[in-house]
Computed example of a mutant assay.
Amino acid sequence: MFNILISDDNESNIYVLEMLIDEWFNENNITKYKIDSALNGKEAIEKVENCIYDIIFLDIMMPVMDGFEALELIRNKSLALQPKVIVSSAIIDNNENKNKAKNLKANAFIVKPLSQETINIMLDKYIKNYINPNNKEAKTNTNYIHFDKDETVESDGTSAKYFLSTYPENILDKEDIEELVNEMNELEQEIKFSANIEDIIKNFSDILEKSRILLLSFTEFSNLVNLLSEIKNHINKVDIYVLENDISFQILELIEILSDWFESLFLQEDLEDVYVINHSIENSFNLLKNLK
């Protein structure tokens, strides 16, 4: 399930952007996605506190709390998965806004009025390339700027590079991590295309066990190891025939969190805070337990 949030004080702008996003998902035959909206930055923050978003489209000029204030709060929150934040403005040549967006760790800066081409570029990069890493089509459009490659993060002792540097290089085999992440991605696709629920639960249980074993080498993740064991025990006891659709959705949420975390920490080594995984896993697991 892909979750997208649009924050704009103009309801007409929200409606247009929803249509552009819907068009992209329809063209790419992706049915499991949800679009939420907020009319100001304060509402956007409230949404972020209650849902894990893949992408946030954030307008700069909004009442109550503007887009920059909201972006700063989002980036300062201890989220296991930081969303991709795309800042929008009606002024393309305002270098002050561009630089501010970049310094606040926006992923991209796009210019209004928004076009289907611009939205396609954003979703191709942040969703399509995530589903299919080999999809690296060249895009040319003067109405957006990607900041991703230019982002730099000061180490505060919790970043992935710092964390991994405190352990011997051979403590983990990256091929094992890559194989696990690939299995997670494959399971995501199985769920999205409605595979047999019994197969999904079996594969999910296997992934939880492999994840648990890989993490045993790191004393910092002992709570997470225990949590994964608890999830595995629970998932094998649930009445899958009664709760088939809800169970699939909750497993998807959990596997997406784990997949992104393993990849960002161990493969890309670009996670800003490696210790915030438990909270998101616990939240999703609590939702799963409430389905009983």
Rank of each mutant, 00 (worst) to 15 (best):
A108T: 01
A108C: 00
A108N: 07
A108S: 14
V111H: 03
V111K: 01
K112I: 00
L114N: 03
S115E: 03
Q116M: 05
Q116G: 15
T118F: 09
I119P: 09
I119Q: 00
I119W: 13
I121M: 13
M122T: 08
M122D: 12
M122Y: 01
D124W: 01
D124Y: 06
D124N: 09
K125N: 13
K125H: 14
K125C: 12
K125S: 15
Y126G: 04
Y126E: 06
I127Y: 14
I127F: 07
I127D: 03
K128T: 05
K128A: 09
K128L: 11
K128I: 13
N129V: 06
Y130V: 14
Y130F: 10
I131T: 03
N132I: 10
N132C: 04
N132P: 07
P133F: 02
N134D: 11
N134V: 04
N134A: 14
K136P: 08
E137H: 04
A138P: 12
A138N: 11
T140I: 13
T140M: 10
T142L: 07
T142A: 05
T142P: 11
T142V: 03
N143Q: 09
Y144N: 00
H146K: 15
H146P: 10
F147N: 02
K149L: 09
K149E: 06
E151C: 15
E151Q: 11
E151D: 06
T152P: 04
E154I: 06
G157N: 01
T158P: 11
T158F: 12
T158I: 04
T158L: 07
A160N: 00
A160Y: 00
Y162Q: 15
F163R: 00
F163G: 02
F163L: 05
L164D: 09
